[in-house]
Computed example of a mutant assay.
Amino acid sequence: MANYTSIQAHPWSRPLNCLALAGLCAVLLFAFAWQILFSEPPCPLCLLQRAAFAMAGVGLLLNIRFGASPLHYGIVILSALGGMFVAGRQILLHIAPNDAGFGSPFLGLHFYTWAFIAFAALIVFCSVVLTFERFTGHDTRQSRSGFAVALVMWLFLVLSAANALSTTLECGFGPCPDDPTGYLWLSPGSGTK
């Protein structure tokens, strides 16, 4: 039997991870709804940010399903760092004066700026939660998931699958267009300007 270090979970660890995963679901759902309602397909950097949100969600999902672990928090933090890097690059691409940025702004900021803030919040969240966890031997106790927890986990999985399908419809199996205007597989020839 493998002996490795895990975390003696704080009683609030699971609900906090569930709340953070619900927040990620809200981010993915909002971006996906905006994409459909306002006909604004995401650019390649936006898709990478969504992938980073999905990977961070996997870490939170693992914490909820299998118990808190430094590995799971590491997945969230590394995914958020990757997402911050991509969002930061996109911010710097549009930092020049009179640059309108990519896509429509929401509450005065573009989605990539909001993504940068959300990734930073995820890192702060993990840092704060980890300060209250205690490292001990492996804890095999598992509690059953309530309806709300199961609903959040399934919502995350459905949103991740929907975003993956949307990306495939937009880009096919090749590189995504830099400035997408449509979906390659839904209407051939409309994927680029």
Rank of each mutant, 00 (worst) to 15 (best):
T113W: 09
T113F: 13
W114L: 00
A115S: 05
A115P: 05
F116S: 00
A118T: 05
A118C: 14
A118W: 14
F119V: 01
F119R: 01
A120G: 06
A121F: 08
L122K: 00
L122H: 01
F125A: 03
F125D: 02
F125P: 02
C126L: 10
C126W: 01
C126T: 15
C126K: 09
C126M: 15
S127L: 09
V129M: 11
V129E: 10
V129L: 15
V129S: 05
L130Q: 10
T131Y: 06
T131M: 08
T131A: 07
F132S: 03
F132P: 07
E133G: 08
E133W: 12
R134Q: 12
R134G: 08
R134I: 09
F135H: 12
T136G: 13
T136M: 14
G137Q: 15
G137V: 13
G137I: 12
D139M: 12
D139K: 10
D139R: 13
T140V: 13
T140A: 14
R141W: 12
Q142R: 15
S145Y: 08
G146Q: 00
F147I: 07
F147P: 03
F147Q: 04
F147T: 06
A148L: 15
A148P: 11
A148R: 15
L151Q: 05
L151T: 09
V152L: 05
W154P: 07
W154I: 10
F156C: 00
F156Y: 04
L157R: 06
L157N: 06
V158G: 00
L159G: 03
L159H: 02
S160G: 02
A162F: 13
N163I: 11
N163F: 12
A164C: 05
A164Y: 11
L165G: 15
L165C: 07
S166W: 15
S166D: 14
S166H: 04
L169K: 06
L169R: 02
L169I: 04
L169G: 01
L169E: 03
L169N: 03
E170F: 14
E170A: 06
E170Q: 14
C171M: 11
C171G: 04
C171K: 07
G172L: 02
G172I: 06
F173Q: 11
F173M: 11
G174S: 07
P175S: 15
C176T: 00
P177F: 01
P177W: 03
D178V: 03
D178I: 01
T181I: 03
T181W: 05
Y183A: 02
L184R: 14
L184T: 13
W185D: 02
L186Y: 15
S187P: 12
S187T: 12
P188S: 13
G189S: 06
G189K: 13
S190Y: 11
G191I: 01
K193L: 12
K193I: 10
K193E: 12
